[in-house]
Amino acid sequence: MDFVGDVRCSVGESPLWCARQAAWYWVDIAAMTIWRLDAASGRLASWQTTEKVASIALTESGGLIAGMESGIFSLELGSSGMAAQRKLGAPPGGMGPGMRFNDGRCDRQGRFWSGTMFADIAANRPLGNLHRYTVRDGVSAPVVSGLLVQNGLAWSPDGRTMYLSDSHPQRQLVWAFDYDPDDGVPSGQRLFVDMQTLPGRPDGAAVDSDGCYWICGNDGGCVLRFTPDGKLDRRVDVPMLKPSMCSFGGAGLDTLLVTSIAVGKTEGDVWAGAIVMLRPGVIGVAETPFPA
């Protein structure tokens, strides 16, 4: 297991691998920062945004699409240290004061998905919705509603199963859905994993080429792997108590990069906010870029 420099993120999230650039990206939500790690040189670069950026995905044109505080944005990362931001259409209904987007990624066809949440988690307000964004249709109406802390988005290798979690301490659930890759509509919501009795709350996730679902156990200091039928078959401990999201990448898609959170850390969590890379012995699935 390797640490990524001496980086410490307040709220590290949304890691992804860009094969074209041979580079990793992730965000620090609270610091309004996008990070980039060049895999060959180990060189780190960062860009600031003007509002919190919670989730990013690659675009075919070489930029990023992002779920942010006030909507879905296109981001270009130049040499100035500031990301060039362009809002993509109107924000969805229900984006009132205190709301923001959270976890997000593209499905296997390149549609961008992200969910909203009420930022004050302690308020216990189930106002979050899951939305789909395409150039043709803009931001969809809520596809899944009543979420406290939307998280854990991922798709099976064939794109026909969608996963979604709710990280809130009152929920700690992961659901699976049947997914129609042609129209991008999930159906048949069902319980995949109840993490109330497992270490950590279900945060960000990834899927490997065997169809197994890897999810960070936030507050549990581990990443858990579940088989497609929802059985826990592996636990990988990490040095940070609050791992937040994981993603497969590297030249062989055999490296798992894990972000973490320093906000609310306990006294003994000396690695809070660190970024680590490990090789779990499996291969991931390449992310599909957004067609723009």
Rank of each mutant, 00 (worst) to 15 (best):
M117R: 12
E267N: 05
V7I: 13
K265E: 12
L256M: 12
P15H: 00
M195C: 13
V193H: 00
L257N: 03
K52C: 10
L153N: 02
M95W: 10
G138D: 03
L130Q: 04
W271G: 03
M162A: 05
T33N: 05
R279W: 07
D219R: 06
A19N: 02
Q150T: 15
A274H: 07
W35T: 01
D182T: 06
T266G: 13
C246L: 08
L147S: 15
K87V: 09
M162F: 04
L44W: 05
D2F: 05
R171L: 01
D219V: 05
R86I: 07
I72S: 10
R136L: 14
W47T: 01
Q150K: 02
S140N: 13
I283T: 15
V282S: 15
P280D: 09
L64P: 00
D120C: 13
D183E: 14
G128M: 08
L64N: 00
R8T: 11
I29Q: 03
C18G: 08
P169L: 11
E69H: 03
G110V: 13
W214C: 07
G12T: 08
S140L: 12
V263G: 04
P289W: 14
S14C: 02
G89F: 09
S140I: 11
K242H: 15
C212G: 04
P289E: 12
E69I: 02
S41V: 00
G63N: 11
G220W: 03
S209V: 03
V149M: 07
D229S: 07
S167D: 12
G93T: 12
F290Y: 14
V207T: 13
G188H: 09
A206F: 01
G5W: 00
V263K: 10
A286T: 10
V236A: 02
G12Y: 05
D229Q: 07
K52A: 14
A122W: 01
S41G: 08
G249C: 09
S55T: 13
M195T: 14
T50L: 00
D166G: 08
S244K: 04
T116C: 09
R8N: 08
Q170Y: 01
V236S: 01
I56D: 00
A123F: 14
G250R: 00
W113G: 04
W271M: 14
R105Q: 12
D237E: 10
H168V: 03
M82W: 12
D254W: 05
I261Y: 03
G138T: 04
R160I: 03
S167I: 11
A54L: 04
A122V: 06
D158W: 09
G110A: 15
R235T: 08
F112R: 07
G115K: 07
M68Q: 11
D203H: 02
P157V: 02
L127R: 11
Y163I: 01
V143E: 09
P199S: 13
A84P: 02
S260Q: 02
L37T: 03
Y133A: 06
A45M: 13
V144Y: 11
P199A: 13
P239R: 06
A23S: 11
S61F: 07
A205W: 03
D180Q: 07
L75W: 10
M162Y: 03
S165L: 01
G81W: 06
R111I: 14
T50R: 14
I65W: 10
M117S: 11
P199V: 12
